[in-house]
Design a protein around this nucleic acid. Structure first.
Lengths: 230, 230
DNA sequence: GCGTAAATGATAGTATTACTATCAGGTAAA
DNA sequence: TTTACCTGATAGTAATACTATCATTTACGC
């Protein structure tokens, strides 16, 4: 049995609903791959148009600009993570186990198939690691925030904070801890791959899993040492 | 008595040494202010040229492009922090006190005068918080790393890791902890100011110090709970 | 199947950005 | 005083980031 869980997005993220047409879906799916291949700065709507055999102008009918497309993709990702978190922890009663699940989810371990709703989740995860902070590290962050563009990220943080508070009801930094957890998992992944001397997870050989498991250990240590502190 | 400690920069960061001429110094000092005022994305060499009454082409004689100017400024900042850390902890024997000093330094508390070598440190700090990650979150990170552009950041991490290891000789994550500390202090500052629901530091009134002190408490908690864990 | 509205393709055009090139004039050092 | 170097000034190019227009195709309602 297969489920297709459609993620409903904030309407201010796009000009025309991309999931409503074939072209729109190609923009999203290939947009992920383009960002992955050339990076956000070097990506252009012209290149994306060539990739999907359409014209620049057609893409502009869906998204105001490249930045908005990135915001959309990142928002989609956070909603996906949020859904996965709810789904995977639904049967669990122990907050500690939920947090354990969360860590594996943030690092995208045990992902059964890397496509969901036809989206390349692994590629999206890589893109989010590299580019997500550019979504809010802008001069117009306040205006974007007013338009609720970051709501999926905030919702996820709130959900994590709730689990933290279920684990330790009097923990005073639940929200900061939640946002730190997300951010730390991302740039430690990035550093591990690109600037390994900023981490303690050197890959012995070219097979990743060993380093990835050490990163997971670190994240677990970070999380529980602070939550279990007096 | 005044000291003027000149920070020597990696020569691959510029085309012509900016500290060697009046124009070069204006590029650096006003560059900080421009990034602060309009943000990295909206800044251009043309705007900077207008600000310092010169021409675009003259700035290109000092820096290959806007990104390299940012890399320069951020590298300068890390070298400045590194120097401050050494200087301020020189007389201390207790690693714990050194770490305490470090936290205050990363948050730029107790900065006596906000100018150093005529650089507006507060403005630079704000710029680093908002823009520093764009220095390495690029498609050409590997090439830039090969050119040693991130050495000041790595050196600072190494110095912090050394202090951590002086405090807990068998701590297995000294480098990751060091880089996490720096990054966390920055985006928590950013979130506190721009997306406060991602933190637990709401400002009661418009005076910052209260929230800032709570952030310091959080950072102290994060650092020592993990280092003091079994 | 027919008529209408909406989506797309195709082409063109503009303003801005991100540079590069050239050369004249001024300044500083030898 | 010659020479080298730095800066100012102007110009120009390629690419980017859009916007506008109109013909064509597709989808949908009847």
């Amino acid at each position: 049995m297969e489920y297709s869980v459609h993620i409903r997005m904030n309407e201010r993220l796009f000009l025309r609903e991309p999931e409503s047409s074939d072209l729109g879906r190609r923009i999203i799916r290939q947009g992920i791959l383009l960002f992955n291949d050339v990076g956000f700065e070097e990506a252009t709507f012209r290149k994306l148009a060539e990739r999907i055999n359409t014209k620049e102008a057609s893409i502009y009918r869906y998204f105001e600009n490249k930045h908005r497309l990135l915001v959309y993709l990142v928002a989609w990702y956070w909603q996906w993570v949020d859904f996965q978190l709810v789904f995977q922890t639904n049967n669990l009663t122990s907050p500690r186990e939920k947090l354990e699940k969360l860590l594996r989810l943030l690092l995208l371990l045990d992902l059964d198939d890397s496509f969901s709703d036809d989206m390349d989740i692994r590629a999206l995860h890589s893109t989010v690691i590299r580019e997500a902070s550019k979504v809010y590290l802008t001069h117009h962050v306040t205006e974007d925030n007013r338009q609720q563009l970051f709501k999926p990220y905030k919702d996820l943080c709130q959900r994590i904070a709730d689990i933290i508070l279920a684990y330790r009801p009097d923990y005073p930094y639940a929200h900061s801890k939640a946002s730190s957890l997300i951010e730390t998992s991302h740039y430690q992944s990035f550093f591990m791959q690109n600037l390994p001397s900023l981490t303690d997870f050197k890959q012995a050989d070219s097979s990743e899993p060993e380093a990835m498991n050490k990163l997971l250990d670190f994240m677990r240590h970070l999380l529980f040492s602070s939550l279990d502190a007096v």
